[in-house]
Design a protein around this nucleic acid. Structure first.
Lengths: 146, 146
DNA sequence: TATAATAATTTTGAAATCGAGATATTAAAT
DNA sequence: ATTTAATATCTCGATTTCAAAATTATTATA
């Protein structure tokens, strides 16, 4: 059934994908210029802003398979940007915890990161951005489960 | 300079990422259930809807490095879903051309694909979708070059 | 307490992607 | 015409990711 609503949805999907990829491409360059890949940055930034996290929950939040978490956390640990900390109450669990070095790096990168996103979005007024936020919030929480 | 506008932009970046990933996660499942990966689908769909394309232009349109194009096109050619066709006027150029088998596959997948996207977007009214399209179009074309 | 079921992490092998050259062709400049 | 620069594709090695199985620890059940 290719009705009108479907055509509009498809169009929205396309512009959503384009916008995301266009923005992301530039954002990733800034991150990589600072010696991190996008996944590493996402993990560090999560730990910086939300505090220590069990490895499992990192996977959930940044959408990464469990095997990949181990890999990224290994990398960041080798770079001394985070530490693994055993959970005292449940020995199955390992926390990732950002180090002082990691904090310093995020503090250095983040303002530039935010500034760049702001520039990339300067084609919208603040009021338009707020409208977009409202609409995308609804989109991010799909109506049912599929 | 972390002013108000920057904060709004960051927020928009986050909800944009979430929305894109949430939708995409589901969309990819449908594609993979049909034996293709997202990149293969993107290439085939491009050829189906836009006609034969020089390999290079495929890279530009779906944002893929030249080495990856070769790889994906090889895969699709092995599956007999597309053909390489030498350009008669410029021997550096190779066109990718979807085969009848490829067309049949897209014809089978695409309606389900479109239908699913429509379902995933049912939390917005058509009018809201149109508003979102307008705003995201502007976003996709960043103001300057960075 | 055993035993089974569940959970968190790691290991492993394969697939996908990138970036930097290599090759071939065409276009431009002198 | 020859050299030089630009373009298109491919090759290769390294990185990142996933999926499935293995490992270890915990919790629930008999």
């Amino acid at each position: 059934m290719e009705n009108d609503s479907t055509a509009v949805s498809l169009k929205l999907f396309i512009v959503l994908s384009r916008a995301y990829k266009a923005i992301n491409e530039h954002v990733n360059k800034v991150i990589q210029a600072n010696g991190l890949n996008p996944t590493e940055f996402a993990v560090l930034e999560l730990l910086y802003h939300k505090g220590d996290q069990p490895l499992q929950q990192i996977g959930g939040k940044i959408l990464l398979a469990s095997g990949s978490i181990t890999y990224v956390v290994d990398k960041l640990e080798q770079k001394r940007l985070l530490q693994r900390i055993a959970c005292p109450s449940d020995r199955r669990v390992t926390y990732a915890s950002i180090t002082d070095e990691g904090k310093a790096l995020i503090q250095e990168i983040f303002p530039e990161h935010a500034e760049q996103i702001n520039k990339l979005m300067s084609s919208l007024t603040d009021s338009e951005k707020l409208t977009a936020i409202d609409l995308l919030k609804k989109l991010g929480i799909p109506a049912g489960k599929f």
